[in-house]
Amino acid sequence: MMTQHDHGDAQLIARVERVLRAQPLQKAPPDLIEKVYQQLALNAVRPWWQRSYATWPAATRAVFVLTSLTAARIVYWVLSSPHGYEAPLRVMTQLSARLWWDGVSRGLGRGQVLLHALCAALPTAWWYVGAAVLMGSYIVCVGCGALVYRSMVRSTVTYEGCLL
């Protein structure tokens, strides 16, 4: 049996339905199609590196894939070897020496020695703790920033709610 409340709900549904179904489509602004054409014209003159990968020249895509695979291999080599960080430094030191970049070569050589000493002196756990502290500090900063913004910077708040 329908209660008065149910009857009220049914009436409300019917009235809202009648009002909303009677709404016509709205016209698009007259400049919309012009903006679309303008954007199409701009897209047509974009250089290839600003377009999606699928539209790149074939040779460029091949070079990109090879470079990415090489970079991934190097990263894997660095991370998997016991003192992986030393290998790239050694390579760069030798390369700069070949290119007669004496200053750079000496600097990199000293950097390599220092890094080796630091890693040997610090226990592995400290590196993980250091990373965790950095990450925690970042999260705290973001959280504090949000708190300060919402409590001090935000003034009168109006929300586009309902009118009574």
Binding site: G8, A146, Y149, R150, V157, Y159, E160, G161, C162, L164
Partner: peptide, 18 residues
């Protein structure tokens, strides 16, 4: 996180259906 909008669902009390 940074929104100016309050977390309430609507702007005020609702009137009954009747």
């Amino acid at each position: 996180l940074f929104s100016d909008y309050p977390q309430t669902e609507h702007g005020g009390p609702e009137l009954p259906v009747e």
